[in-house]
Amino acid sequence: MNDIALTDIIRNLVDGAMWTVGLSLTAFVLGGIAGLCVLFARIARHALPRRLAKGYIEVFQGTPLLMQLFIIFFGGGLIGLEIPPWLAAALGLTLFTSAYLGEIWRGCVEAIPKGQWEASASLAMTHLEQMRYVILPQALRIAIAPTVGFSVQVVKGTAVTSIIGFVEMTKTGSMLANATFQPFLVFGLVALGYFALCYPLSAYSRVLERKIHGSRAH
C-alpha cells in the first residue's frame, strides 16, 4: 500500500493542520475571555471568588490535559449529553487555556505598582474603573509577550485531542502512517507542521519581550 503519493500525504496533513489551527484559535479566543473572568475572580476583593479561582487554576495546572479531556468526553454521557470529540476538545482546551491565561495575567496585574491603585482610588474611582482605565492598560503592555508565548502551548495542546478522536494534524498523521507504512516520513512531516505553526509565535514572543525590556531600561 505504498501507492499513496507524497503530495497526497502533504495535502491530507495540510487539511489536518487547518483543524489544528481552527481548534487553537477557538480555544485561545474563548479561553482568553474565560481567562479574563478567572483573572477578575483571582484578584477580587472578596475571599470567596479569590479562593475559587485559585482552586480552579490549581486543578487545571495540576492534572494532565488528557485526563481533563477524558472527563469531559465521558462525563457528558453521565448527564445524558452526547459530546462529540470536537466539542470535548474545544471545551477542554478552552478551560485549560483560561486557567493558564488567568494566572499569567494575574502576574501582570500584580506587577503594576501599588501606587497606581492608591492614586486611582484617591480619585474616587470604583474597582471596575480602576481596572478599566488605570491597571489593565498598563498590565496589557507587559502581558502581550507571555500571552503570545503561551499560545504555543495551546497549539501543542491540540495534539492531545487526537487521543479522544478529534481528527487534527496528529490524528491525520497517525492514520496516514498506518495507511502508508511510512511512519518516519509522516511523523517527521507532522513535526515540521507543528514547528511551522509554533516557531513564528515563539520568535514573535521573544521579540516582544526584548522590546519591553528595552523600553524599561530608558
Binding site: G157, V160, T170, S174, P183, F187, G188, A191, Y194, S202
Partner: peptide, 21 residues
C-alpha cells in the same frame, strides 16, 4: 527550538513509530 515548538505526543510517535524505519 525544535523540541519546544513541537508537541510531546508527536515527538513520542516519531521516536516509537518512526525510528524503527
Amino acid at each position: 527550538e525544535f523540541i519546544r515548538n513541537t508537541p510531546f505526543l508527536v515527538q513520542l510517535f516519531f521516536i516509537f513509530f518512526g525510528l524503527p524505519s
